[in-house]
């Protein structure tokens, strides 16, 4: 198994930057993938995308004021994300406008502000960095942040799991038996924002949502249980991270897109080959049971 060792183990053993990248990507998968499962089941997959764009001006403001520093960029991103999430949520709850339209309005305004701010100072290289991240250059601060977000996310899931599931499955029922109905929606939006902020250090604002949605979308095809689906999404996320990093290392490709494309491969494999995918649901139609 010399080949296996050379190709798969050695890069991570020999290079510290690969170890950091691996640690960051694994922690991200652990927390972002289950968040993605809930996003998908609430038909909010594209909301994740919108939120990812929405954090840009906050990150850009941090970048403008302090340069490429993780703490200000993160705090800025958090503030922008929370303003957009709460603003869009409030408009949807207080007016006749639905959340998709208000979210689109808020994120577009936010995104244009962000691009404006980046172009005020930086070169296009800076913009590229903010948009696409650098998983291979994660420093200690970034790793710490990702770890913190992962712990917070898993803790929140541990406490609010039942309410999150009930809110997705039957929101009116939850409101009739508990006061958690509205708060749990905002708690969930908060989870989306902090995971996107954690992700953009590694994958950039545009792609951080990829590690959320693609593994979840792939896992949807394999199971009808939300617990299993979440674990499967995490597994797909972990595998995509490893294979993406290796691909990036061996073929000298940018690491962020390589990770997300690996998840994309898992998605297409699931679309085609899974029990609920295209091939098997077609085949079942030809024969049928008596009852």
């Amino acid at each position: 198994m010399l080949g296996f060792h050379d190709y798969v183990i050695a890069p991570f053993v020999e290079f510290a930057f690969m170890q950091r990248a691996l640690a960051g990507a694994l922690m991200l998968s652990l927390s972002a993938c289950p968040v993605g499962v809930f996003l998908m089941l609430r038909r909010m997959s594209l909301t994740g995308d919108a939120m990812a764009h929405a954090i840009l001006p906050g990150a850009a403001a941090g970048f403008l004021l302090y340069g490429l520093q993780i703490v200000p960029m993160t705090i800025g991103g958090l503030i922008a994300g929370i303003v957009v999430a709460l603003g869009a949520g409030a408009v949807a709850r207080l007016t006749i406008q639905k959340e998709d339209a208000s979210m689109a309005a808020f994120y577009l305004i936010s995104l244009s502000l962000g691009v404006l701010m980046v172009s005020l100072r930086g070169s296009s290289v800076d913009l590229m960095h903010v948009l696409f991240g650098t998983v291979l250059a994660l420093n200690n601060d970034a790793l710490m942040l990702i770890g913190l977000v992962a712990a917070l996310t898993l803790g929140t899931f541990g406490i609010f799991w039942r309410a999150l599931v009930a809110e997705c499955l039957d929101p009116l029922f939850l409101r009739s038996v508990s006061r958690l109905g509205s708060p749990v929606h905002f708690i969930f939006l908060g989870l989306v924002v902090i995971n996107l902020v954690a992700g953009f250090q590694a994958l950039g604002t545009l792609l951080s949502v990829g590690l959320m949605i693609l593994p979840a979308a792939a896992a949807r095809f394999w199971t009808q249980r939300i617990e299993v689906m979440s674990l499967l999404a995490i597994a797909i996320g972990l595998l995509s991270s490893v294979s993406g990093l290796l691909l990036s290392y061996h073929a000298s490709l940018p690491s962020g897109p390589a990770i997300i494309l690996s998840a994309g491969v898992a998605y297409f494999a699931s679309v085609i080959g899974s029990p609920r995918g295209v091939l098997l649901t077609r085949r079942r139609r030809i024969a049928h049971r008596t009852a």
């Binding site: 089941l41 599931v165 039957d170 029922f173 009808q224 249980r225």
Partner: peptide, 10 residues
């Protein structure tokens, strides 16, 4: 009901 019937639940 606001029940989401496509939700993966038994």
């Amino acid at each position: 009901s606001e029940l989401d019937r496509s939700f993966p639940a038994r």
